[in-house]
């Protein structure tokens, strides 16, 4: 039996190599450049909001960054609802996923999709199906950092 298994494994390995060689890879350099440009544009726009808040509305840094986050999340949610954000994401990849706008998109899109299953078990339960892991590990990590800070650094 063992020899058959080894032979089978070899065939599988050969096939996987063949499949890899035939299937094209994503264009990593092109994707990186687009991600850089789009991500950079989103962040520059965020900085613009921060500067306006600080210079024209007399806010301190903390208030200005809160306003920036709120504005970016609102715009992203609106564009998601209008079906525009997915079109940006298709080309921009990580450029529109990594900024806070991508986070908003990952919450609004399942919420829209599952509305037909009702507001409790649909929207309520499925809203965080994609962003949930980010929240779990983001909050967990912040607790660890907080504890380290409290016991060792303070």
């Amino acid at each position: 039996m063992d020899s058959i298994d080894v032979k089978q494994k070899k065939i599988h390995k050969e096939y996987q190599d063949l499949a890899n060689s035939i299937s094209p890879k994503s264009n990593i350099i092109g994707n990186c450049i687009r991600a850089f440009l789009v991500g950079g544009t989103i962040c520059t726009f965020g900085q613009l909001i921060t500067n306006i808040a600080k210079n024209y509305y007399d806010m301190n840094t903390e208030e200005a960054s809160t306003i920036t986050s709120i504005s970016l999340i609102f715009i992203s949610a609106l564009l998601t609802g209008m079906g525009i954000y997915e079109k940006i994401g298709k080309r921009a990849g990580a450029g529109s996923v990594v900024p806070i706008t991508g986070f908003a998109n990952s919450i609004v899109s399942p919420a829209m999709e599952h509305k037909r299953e009702g507001y409790v078990m649909g929207v309520g339960a499925k809203m965080f199906s994609i962003a949930g892991p980010v929240l779990v590990y983001g909050i967990s990590a912040s607790v660890v950092v907080g504890l380290v800070n409290y016991f060792f650094i303070r």
């Binding site: 094209p24 994503s26 997915e86 994401g89 998109n105 599952h114």
Partner: peptide, 17 residues
């Protein structure tokens, strides 16, 4: 798409395959 992959409005990239 919604059963096997992501919500439609989610901005993801699809690989060439």
């Amino acid at each position: 798409e919604r059963q096997f992959r992501f919500p439609l409005e989610m901005g993801t990239q699809r690989p060439p395959t």
